[in-house]
Design a protein around this nucleic acid. Structure first.
Lengths: 175, 175
DNA sequence: ACCTGAACACCGTTCAAGT
DNA sequence: ACCTGAACACCGTTCAAGT
């Protein structure tokens, strides 16, 4: 017997080893020792499978330890996101195509909220700052993993991020 | 007779009307009154067709008038990008998966360079600032068009962008 | 309840053949 | 040079059927 979680995990593993384009109903089924038609019991077609795959990816995102200072927490979260993107270059881009209001997106968002509040951002500005910050971080990680920075030294890319990180933290401290 | 440009244009039109997932070799060929196999004369398989489609999209990106002040030019470019994304929600995400060093990417990049220099950004910092700025703008437009902000008022999304735009312009003027 | 076999309408791509 | 017909190995999805 096979559960929805099994299907999603198999799909994510397949994406990690063979790339997102290798994730077909038939290939996921084979990996589970079952026919493609059996998946329809647990997943509402391929789109739902891909949605679930992204949800799974978010669920596995490591969150920073809560006893760290806010700036280190934000940087750690950034690292987590970049690592997730590099592990799943194909699937990661789908994060920009899904509503940010999905349940799995809540944990990382709440982590950013907490860090921003601790940094002194006024409560009514916290959601806005989170959206803007996450948009940049997702765009950066998707670009890096997707190959948009392919023409540049890794060191240059790293320095780009360090530069903007410093600007953002300076901005947050100034508020 | 059919040219590469014809193939790419047909693909982009198909993406605009029926979505990126409708862009198949066979469908593009049919739109040109030709069989799928004929496309291989002009395009090196489907990946190359999609690459060309994105290139085409960039080529059609309207650049701001050069006599505008630098801040208005940056905002106009942002508008262009958002409009392109909303016209091609599927194809736009591919911009994050292609090297930013493609010939078609040069025109908009040079426009940003010029605006940043005019804003007083030191020459050696201009490429870095352009990468960071473009990364945010692409991430924002891809999120908006892709549906990541689906749970929010359009007015909220607009205010998010206005807020960060003001911060960025303030930062540029301060340098 | 859970899975399968057979079938349908699609894909991308090749290769030899036509003109 | 440019296009086509036929073929191959794949897709996602349905529906009735098995257990």
């Amino acid at each position: 017997v096979i559960s929805r979680h099994d299907v999603l995990s198999a799909a994510l593993e397949l994406a990690e080893t063979d790339g997102l384009e290798a994730v077909s109903m038939r290939a996921v089924a084979e990996r589970l020792g079952v026919t493609a038609m059996a998946l329809y019991r647990h997943v509402d077609g391929k789109d739902d499978l891909l949605d679930g795959l992204v949800e799974q990816l978010l669920d596995e995102l490591p969150l920073p330890a809560e006893d760290l200072p806010w700036d280190e927490r934000l940087r750690a979260l950034g690292s987590s996101v970049r690592q997730a993107a590099s592990r799943h270059p194909g699937a990661f881009g789908m994060l920009l195509r899904r509503p940010a209001s999905t349940p799995a997106a809540r944990r990382p968002r709440d982590a950013v909220y907490a860090a921003l509040r601790e940094a002194g951002v006024p409560d009514e500005l916290v959601p806005r700052a989170e959206r803007v910050l996450s948009t940049f971080m997702l765009g950066f990680a998707a670009s890096e993993a997707g190959g948009r920075f392919a023409g540049h030294d890794p060191a240059t890319v790293e320095a780009d991020l360090a530069w903007v990180t410093a600007l953002i933290e300076r901005g947050l401290r100034g508020a």
